[in-house]
Amino acid sequence: MDLKLDHHTEDRLTIVEVEGEIDVYTAPRLRELLIDLVNKGNFHLLVNMEKVDFLDSTGLGVLVGGLKRVRAHDGSLELVCTQERILKIFRITGLTKVFGIYASVEEAKEAHGRDK
């Protein structure tokens, strides 16, 4: 399955919807989108990974790269993910300590609202 990307902004939080497989072939498209969003002044990003079927270390690299970019602007990049197969790679690499990972977009929006 190819990668589908979409995004919208709600109250200063830009929600990036990702669907499909994030791997060495598709990850550059996600990287481009994250860079474009940051260049346009979107520094608080929430990446919804609930419809992601596959994620490898290339995809992790893109997310870490995005996090570095938003942090340079005092921003944030957090994730929505409940799929065990995807969470596993975050745990293996220790990145569960680096990213805020929420169970739903609503939960993340609530936390973001508290942090504002």
Binding site: D23, V24, F54, D56, S57, T58, R85, K88, I89
Partner: peptide, 17 residues
């Protein structure tokens, strides 16, 4: 099977790069 899929993908991605 998910582990096989991910591990093989990682090895092939590394080789391609």
């Amino acid at each position: 099977l998910d582990e096989v899929r991910l591990a093989v993908g990682e090895a092939c991605s590394r080789a391609v790069e």
